[in-house]
């Protein structure tokens, strides 16, 4: 049974940084997102759960402007951003950590980090953010001159997160941060996500690893074939029977 957003939980949430209002996205004829509504409060960690082909990645692409919604409004920091090109969205503080990392394989780790700050011109602040990234990811600092394509999956994930942070984002959009990582690494990545959030960055995260995602999130949405079938606080989702069966149980069985 879908549980609707209880009024008291919604009012306890922070003011919205990102909102989807009845968004419909198509790939050609294929109706991928069917009138979805999301809300990411300022300073929150929000996770989006769902199986394959549920529209999770399309949600990410819609936020970044790689695909455009056919109808509905995406609002960021109080303004509709549907017509803005990706570069402008990045400039306004939305930074992605894409699925499968998508580092620039023939650039060094340092160059990848610097590309993250591509839209910025404040040289001193960029240096300061580099140090901040090294603080979060000591491993990245050891690998600065290595080509990104030669790194292990976990190291690539760290560089991808570091690259996104170099944009000094208000909103970090993470697509499957745990994908392809060893369990030990997954835990480390989620610890760091939490640390980044505590430094003031809001996080919108698409994740298959529901257990991990819900353990750090404030709020969650469950997406099924393009529709939000369930939403609520992370705690309420963990207690929800359907989520337990469809996502958490699955994790335990593995």
């Amino acid at each position: 049974m879908p549980i609707s957003d209880a009024p008291q939980t919604q009012s306890q949430r922070r003011p919205p940084l990102l909102e989807f209002n009845d968004v419909n996205t198509y790939y050609g004829e294929l109706h991928v997102l069917k009138g979805v509504n999301y809300r990411v409060g300022d300073g929150e960690i929000v996770c989006l759960l769902g199986g394959n082909a549920s529209g999770k990645s399309t949600t990410m692409k819609t936020i970044l402007g790689i695909v455009r919604p056919k109808s509905g409004v995406v609002t960021y920091a109080g303004k509709p951003i549907d017509r803005l090109p990706t570069a402008e969205r990045v400039r306004r503080g939305i930074a992605p950590v894409p699925e499968a990392r998508r580092l620039f394989p023939r650039m060094t780790v340092l160059e990848n980090l610097e590309m993250g700050a591509f839209t910025r011109t404040d040289t001193d602040e960029i240096e300061a953010d580099k140090e901040r990234v090294f603080g979060l990811f000591p491993r990245v600092k050891e690998r600065l001159t290595q080509l990104a394509g030669t790194l292990s999956g976990g190291e690539q994930q760290m560089v991808a997160m570091g690259r996104a942070l170099m944009a000094r984002p208000k909103l970090l959009c993470m697509d499957e941060p745990s994908m392809g990582l060893s369990p030990a690494f997954v835990e480390q990545v989620f610890d760091i996500i939490q640390a980044i959030n505590k430094q003031g960055t809001s996080i919108f995260m698409v994740e298959q690893n529901a257990n991990m995602a819900l353990s750090i999130a404030d709020y969650g949405y469950v997406l099924q074939t393009g529709e939000v079938v369930l939403q609520g606080s992370a705690q309420s989702l963990r207690d929800n029977e359907m989520v337990q069966q469809a996502y958490l149980g699955e994790m335990k069985a593995q």
Binding site: I66, T86, A95, P98, R102, L103, F118, T119, A167
Partner: peptide, 11 residues
């Protein structure tokens, strides 16, 4: 190297 990733960092 990766057009979509370039777009995502604001190129």
């Amino acid at each position: 190297q990766d057009q979509e990733a370039a777009r995502m960092v604001g190129v």
